[in-house]
Design a protein around this nucleic acid. Structure first.
Lengths: 220, 220
DNA sequence: GTCTATATAGCGATAGAC
DNA sequence: GTCTATCGCTATATAGAC
């Protein structure tokens, strides 16, 4: 499970490829708005500009379409970990870079974040296997890097897994629950400068919260 | 909208009261698991141990039942703010108390938190009015208290609303996405000691992240 | 390959017996 | 007030024309 359609890997007609892309894009948008159960194949078809039957032709069932959309999203939230949280980086650089990457992801791919959140809220029935295997191993590896930074005296001793949980919670909230943020701020959408303030706030909370001392300059 | 059933405020038969309570409790449980669209009146009825028709007799429609469940939840996430974040408290006490209260709420009422999260994910169609009116005013009031603490030199200058957003994100993640946390930790449920570690981690992140200096003792 | 027209199932809601 | 039996609608899925 959780593999791409074999057909998608091979050479295929550009019409087929274009139609599947349109469907997947429309499905991601609709699933993000209404969740799996709240979405209908008819609405996804309309969003994609195709007849409803074509969705079944390409993806079989609604569940398989949902699963395919999820497969494209699954990797996104772990990619930045391995990029930024590495033993050879200083935590000031690694944590700040990771937080910024997570925040920019929340800003640029809110639909992906919401589908992920919706799947977790349901108890992760589709991606449970992935969570307990691949994802867990990578997260534990990242936690060991954080542990190493602490033991090297580069930051305070803090429960590494819980540090990751809080970073995920802080960053993803800007995608998943942005309606709450916008209604509080009283804006119809969050400006770039406002979002930069958000990034700064989260970064500061993480760096100072972990007692990270900058390698190049002292905190003010 | 968002008012309690008038009938619920008046004296009513104990049978009626008991049935409505059973339905509301079952509905909260089912809505938390499957969301509004994914839940069926039949499943809620079975969970409550009553015939399906009784749900319609007491609450009319599925939407009204959902709305009633939501009404019982709406106030919960703002209650602790007014209790802990007050001008006459020191931020070390106020923020730590608030974080602990939010964390204990996530632990004790995960279903309530998940329904709230699910409603926000959908774009908050039912509670939008409440969010932009009552909730917004109270949150802005809380933000002014945080601002006052900063200006009094009791903590760093940090964007007050974003501080609240991050606290909500960190604490609610332990209810909403606990499947992710449990799969990472490799446990079927989170122990009390593990959860205490979580509370300590979040509290430390907030207090040190905001540069709060304890009024009674220096940070180590 | 593409799309219209339709079969089938499940759900919300209700009528009416008790 | 309570519950059984059922109605009508909507959504998934497919058959079959083009």
């Amino acid at each position: 499970m959780l593999r791409l359609e074999p057909k998608a890997d091979q050479k295929m007609g550009s019409i087929r490829r274009g139609a599947m892309q349109a469907i997947l894009h429309a499905a991601e948008c609709v699933f993000a708005r209404h969740g799996l159960a709240g979405s209908t194949m008819a609405e996804i078809a309309q969003e994609a500009g195709l007849p409803k039957a074509n969705l079944h032709y390409y993806f079989g069932t609604k569940d398989r379409l949902y699963q395919t959309v999820l497969e494209g999203i699954v990797g996104e939230w772990l990619d930045h970990e391995a990029e930024w949280i590495t033993p050879n980086r200083h935590p000031a650089e690694g944590l700040a870079g990771y937080v910024r990457a997570k925040m920019l992801h929340a800003r640029r791919r809110p639909d992906a974040s919401r589908i992920w959140a919706s799947e977790l809220l349901r108890g992760a029935p589709v991606i449970m296997g992935y969570l307990c295997q691949t994802a867990r191993q990578q997260v534990l590896g990242t936690a060991r890097v954080l542990q190493g930074w602490s033991e090297a005296g580069l930051m305070d001793r803090i429960a590494p897994t819980h540090l990751l949980f809080t970073i995920w919670g802080m960053t993803q909230t800007y995608a998943d629950f942005d309606v709450q943020i916008r209604s509080t701020l009283g804006t119809s959408d969050i400006s770039d400068t406002e979002f930069e303030t958000a990034i700064q706030t989260v970064t500061t909370m993480v760096l100072k919260g972990c007692g990270v001392r900058s390698p190049t300059q002292l905190p003010r």
